[in-house]
Amino acid sequence: MRIEYFLLVDRIVSLSIEEGVVRCEATVPAESTIYEGHFPGFPVLPGVLLIEAMAQTAGWLVLAMTRCERFPFLSIINEAKLRNFVRPGNVLMVESKLIYEGSGYIKTENRVLFESAVMCEATTTFRVLPFPSPVFQEKLVAHALNIGFPAEFAKNVR
């Protein structure tokens, strides 16, 4: 995780459009100014960042489904459950599964695992829209390829 850049997953471990499943790894930073407030003497990764990590993970799946032509804007978060404290240094597995592809929107179920324990889960809905900026699209795809996004889904943009 590079929290200061809001990059919350480190690498795409697997991505299958056929199965509608993506898995990403994310290592919680050992040090961060966030822990000075959250919480003094008991550092915990804020739950909102775990939700964002799930959204970013699901986003890679949607990006692959659209061949990098469209961007998923997080719109609805349902049934979010923060089950356990996520601590500095934890190596997390973030999983997202497609549950529905509608007209212009996508729903996914997501969860974060640490050593096979579910730390949190949520259902998310994304509006899937054309990229608002070609620079954004190019930079996002470049980052995607750096963290293991399958190149076959980025042919249209590269």
Binding site: S75, I76, Y100, G102, S103, Y105, K107, T125, R127
Partner: peptide, 8 residues
């Protein structure tokens, strides 16, 4: 936004 839930 609510209509997305309804459409689903």
């Amino acid at each position: 936004l609510d209509f997305l839930d309804i459409a689903f």
